[in-house]
C-alpha cells in the first residue's frame, strides 16, 4: 500500500471516529443545554432551538436543585412561612458515607482473597474459587428479601454498617475474579525469593502483591465506586429513604415530584451528581486503561 492511500485511510478512520464521538455526545450536550433552560422553554421546544432562536439561559434549575425547592406553608399558629425543601448537601454526605467504605472494604478483602486463591496452597482451593465465580451469575435482586430478614434479626437494617456489608457482598465475586486473574500473572520468581528470605504470606501480600496490583485495584475501585454511587435499589432496601440517610440517587428520584411534574430538574441534578464520579474517574484514569487489561494476558 502506498503512503498516499494509507493517509487517505487514516483520514477516513479519523473522520468516522469524529462522527461517532459526536453522535455519542449529542444526548449529553442536549442534556446540558436543557439543564440551563427555564422550565417553560424545556417543555415547549427542543434544546436544539437555541441554535437558531434567541432564548435565555439560566442557572435556576441548578439553584433549585442545590438549594431545595421553595414552598410556602401555614404553620399551626396560622402564620405563613416560606421555607426550602431538602437540598443535596446532606445527600452528598450520605452518599460519600455509604460509598467510601463500600469501596475500601471489598477491595481489601478481594485483594487478599485473590492472593490466597492464586498463590497459597490449601485444600478445597479450586472448589472455593469455583463457588466465588459461580456467584457472579446470581442476580443480587433475589438476595434482597433473605438478607433483609437476617438483617432485621440482628438489627442491621437502616445502619451504615448494613449497607457497607451488603455492597461488599455484592461486589466481592467480580472483585475477587478480576484481581485473581491479575495477581496470578505476577512472576513466580518474585514470590519464591521472598519466601526464601523468610517472608510470611501476610508480608508478601502487603509488600509485594498490593503494590504490584495497583492498576487492577484502581480499575476495580472505579467499577465499584460507580456501582455503589449510582445504586438506588440496595440503598432503598437496606438503608431506607428518610432524609437523614437518603443518598443522592434517592434525592434525585424524589426531586421530580410525586407525579413527575418537575422532571426538568433532573437535567441539572444529573450534572451535579456526575461531578464526584468524574473526579474519581480522572484521578484513577491512568491506571484504568492498564487495569482494563487485567488478567487478559496470563503469564
Amino acid at each position: 500500500m502506498s503512503i498516499k492511500t494509507e493517509q487517505r485511510w487514516l483520514r477516513l478512520v479519523n473522520a468516522s471516529l469524529i462522527v461517532l464521538v459526536l453522535l455519542w455526545a449529542i444526548p449529553i450536550i442536549g442534556l446540558f443545554i436543557s439543564s440551563l433552560r427555564a422550565k417553560s422553554d424545556v417543555l415547549n421546544s427542543g434544546w436544539w432551538t437555541i441554535l437558531y432562536t434567541k432564548s435565555r439561559l439560566t442557572f435556576a434549575n441548578y439553584k433549585q436543585v442545590l438549594g431545595g425547592s421553595k414552598y410556602t406553608f401555614v404553620d399551626s399558629a396560622g402564620r405563613t412561612v416560606r421555607a426550602s425543601g431538602d437540598n443535596l448537601s446532606r445527600a452528598f454526605i450520605n452518599s460519600l458515607t455509604v460509598t467510601i467504605p463500600s469501596v475500601i472494604i471489598p477491595l481489601l478483602i478481594a485483594s487478599a482473597a485473590a492472593f490466597g486463591f492464586a498463590w497459597l496452597i490449601f485444600p478445597g482451593r479450586k472448589a472455593f474459587f469455583t463457588a466465588v465465580v459461580a456467584m457472579l451469575v446470581v442476580p443480587l435482586q433475589i438476595a434482597l428479601i433473605p438478607i433483609l430478614r437476617d438483617y432485621q434479626k440482628i438489627g442491621l437494617t437502616g445502619s451504615y454498617l448494613g449497607i457497607w456489608l451488603a455492597h461488599t457482598g455484592f461486589g466481592l465475586p467480580l472483585g475477587i475474579y478480576l484481581l485473581y486473574n491479575y495477581v496470578s500473572t505476577i512472576p513466580r520468581d518474585i514470590f519464591e525469593s521472598a519466601f526464601l528470605d523468610g517472608a510470611k504470606p501476610l508480608v508478601v501480600f502487603a509488600r509485594l502483591v498490593l503494590p504490584l496490583s495497583v492498576p487492577a485495584i484502581a480499575s476495580l475501585a472505579i467499577f465499584q465506586f460507580l456501582w455503589v454511587w449510582n445504586d438506588l435499589l440496595v440503598a432503598l432496601v437496606f438503608l431506607g429513604g428518610t432524609s437523614d440517610v437518603a443518598v443522592l440517587t434517592q434525592r434525585l428520584a424524589t426531586m421530580v415530584g410525586s407525579r413527575g411534574q418537575d422532571w426538568h430538574l433532573l437535567t441539572a441534578g444529573a450534572f451535579i451528581v456526575m461531578v464526584i464520579p468524574l473526579i474519581v474517574f480522572f484521578a484513577l484514569q491512568r491506571y484504568f486503561v492498564q487495569g482494563l487489561m487485567a488478567g487478559s494476558v496470563k503469564g
Binding site: 434482597l144 438483617y151 432485621q152 438506588l232 432503598l236 432496601v237 428518610t242 428520584a253 424524589t254 410525586s258
Partner: peptide, 21 residues
C-alpha cells in the same frame, strides 16, 4: 412521626414487608 416517601413505593413496600422490616 417519621415520614419516608419513595417513588418506588410499590416495589419497596412488598420487599420490606416480606423482609420483616
Amino acid at each position: 412521626v417519621i415520614y419516608e416517601g419513595s417513588k418506588d413505593f410499590e416495589t419497596l413496600i412488598s420487599v420490606r414487608v416480606e423482609g420483616g422490616n
